[in-house]
Simulated scan of single mutants.
Amino acid sequence: MAKLSKRTRAARGAFEGKSDVSVEEAVALVKDNATAKFDETVDIAMNLGVDPRHADQMVRGVVSLPNGTGKTVRVAVFARGAKADEAREAGADIVGAEDLMETVQGGTIEFDRCIATPDMMPIVGRLGKVLGPRNLMPNPKVGTVTMDVAQAVKDAKGGQVQFRAEKAGVVHGPVGKASFGAEQLAENVKAFVDAVSKAKPTGAKGTYMKKVVLSSSMGPSVTVSVDSATGNEATPAE
């Protein structure tokens, strides 16, 4: 068994006995124990009562975090002509059409978000096997297939986060950096949870939001009270 570092032991000790804490306490714990030599990302993971293998139980959406993610997002846009120019002016990192398709097919994917105008989808559709598994496939449901490419680029650069339930019904995503203020992180956490809550599918049965967990890149995780995360702490029992 590998020997734990002093930092890891200290972090685990701080988290010991902590469970179902408020968002504010969870944020404080994660921030205080994010002691790596880089600015750690703070991540949220949510266990949902859904089976995404069924179409009516798929959870997918997008949320604009009020305080951004703290991450530099590289955006690629499939567009031609005036729309390509709009994308570049809005700050897109990569803009193209067939040439960009060939680059991606060749295995070069140097972007974190992919946007396309509707007329480009026949080309982008050929990349489904490449972009799909990476959750990069443009989709109108999350605003990445659109004629308003300038706004889509600005949203992506400004802290918009896409989320999608994985096979086990888990949704996860970044909610900021450890260097963020505690209040900023708490606001981002609640915004993320609220967006997932509003994305509840029609086929979800029983308890929808089962568990919420917060952690930093290198630190332990802590379970957050679902009531605190959803703002229902003061809701009386039925």
Rank of each mutant, 00 (worst) to 15 (best):
M1H: 09
A2T: 02
L4F: 05
S5C: 04
R9A: 04
A11G: 11
A14K: 12
D20R: 11
L29I: 13
N33V: 10
K37E: 09
E40N: 10
G49L: 13
V50A: 04
D51Q: 05
P52F: 05
H54C: 01
D56R: 11
G68I: 02
G70S: 11
G70T: 00
T72Q: 11
V73F: 03
G81H: 14
G81Y: 15
E86Y: 12
A87D: 04
A90N: 01
A90C: 06
D93L: 10
I94K: 00
V104M: 03
Q105T: 07
E110K: 11
F111D: 00
R113M: 03
I115F: 02
P118Q: 13
M120G: 10
M121N: 06
I123A: 02
I123C: 02
G125C: 13
G125V: 07
L131M: 06
N139R: 05
T144M: 12
T144F: 04
K154N: 05
K154E: 11
D155F: 14
K157A: 02
Q162N: 13
R164C: 00
A165T: 06
A168Q: 12
V171S: 05
K177P: 01
F180V: 01
Q184R: 06
E187G: 04
A199S: 15
K205Q: 14
G206V: 08
Y208P: 01
K211P: 00
V213S: 07
L214H: 08
L214C: 07
M218D: 05
G219N: 07
V224H: 00
